[in-house]
């Protein structure tokens, strides 16, 4: 007696293609596209999806979570400063207090819970797909993203010449970390000038990241470490509280904008 039900190869193939085609049809025009599936991007995506906003996360890697799997120096303890531990409470992540105001949790636990929370909230994910360019509308407002499969970029041009596809959205969130890929694309087009990381190191850097989270160009919001690069904020250590709270603030800013548009 076999363990599994009988199914043909063609049925498996049809299941994959039909569901993916249906998903892609939805991705073509959505409310918010978030480029980057690290902690700030996932946090923003989860909060928006909980408010019934249609969100797509585009992640260039096969895996989601970005640097949230590990802490500083490749050690997988994540540190979170108060009040960001309240987000861990919401996500059901257990943590320990290291000292007053500073908490620790295993990276794999926190990261997997955040991914799970985003998916359960209804966030759509397009992984192994890389951001290629922005879609611009009137007055250079960002109105979508051009994406392609990540492996295409890794192959020589003479072997692959695969055109990307454009996905439209009301807003884009750049959550690509210190690379600030979307913001850099605007810089390439001469629409913005990015100062890069600030030279100083000050202890209130985490606060500055959260406070600067918001629009950096019409139609484009920045969250997480991309905020540091975009606004030239001081460098900061490997702590994730500001990533989570920046994602949350990015979602708030996006939601207010979308609500205002309606």
């Amino acid at each position: 007696m076999p363990i599994f039900e009988k199914s043909s190869e063609s049925s498996v193939t049809r299941a994959i293609i039909s569901q993916f085609a249906k998903d892609m049809d939805g991705f073509a025009d959505t409310d918010v596209i978030i480029i980057g599936g690290g902690p700030s991007g996932l946090m923003a995506a989860r909060d928006l999806a909980l408010k019934k906003v249609r969100v797509l996360v585009v992640e260039r890697n096969n895996y989601l979570g970005g640097g949230f799997w590990i802490g500083g120096f490749l050690m997988n303890t994540i540190t979170i400063r108060a009040p960001a531990q309240k987000v861990l409470d919401e996500l059901g992540v257990k943590y320990k207090m290291y000292e007053k105001g500073l908490y620790m949790t295993p990276g794999p636990l926190a990261c997997s819970k955040l991914i799970s929370a985003a998916c359960e909230a209804g966030v759509s994910i397009l992984n192994m797909a890389s951001f290629d360019d922005v879609v611009l509308r009137e007055k250079n407002r960002v109105a979508g993203a051009v994406v392609n499969w990540t492996p295409v970029g890794a192959l020589p041009r003479n072997i692959t010449c695969v055109d990307p596809v454009a996905l439209e959205s009301k807003l884009i969130i750049d959550a690509t970390g210190h690379e600030a890929t979307v913001v850099r694309k605007l810089e390439e087009r001469g629409l913005i000038k990015v100062p890069g990381f600030g030279a100083m190191w000050v202890e209130k850097s985490e606060d500055a990241v959260v406070e600067h989270t918001g629009f950096c160009h019409p139609g484009l919001i920045v969250t997480g470490m991309a905020v540091s690069t975009t606004f030239g904020l001081p460098r900061m250590g490997p702590t994730f509280g500001s990533m989570l709270l920046s994602g949350r603030r990015g979602a708030d800013v996006a939601y207010k904008y979308l609500k205002g548009k309606k």
Partner: peptide, 26 residues
């Protein structure tokens, strides 16, 4: 010598209006 970004103006306006906290910028 630089032209302030849209987001920098937005941040300064929010600080002036008490919607964001000042800090971290020189």
């Amino acid at each position: 010598d630089f032209e302030p970004m849209y987001g920098e103006l937005d941040y300064e306006r929010r600080v002036l209006e008490g919607e964001a906290r000042a800090g971290g910028i020189l």
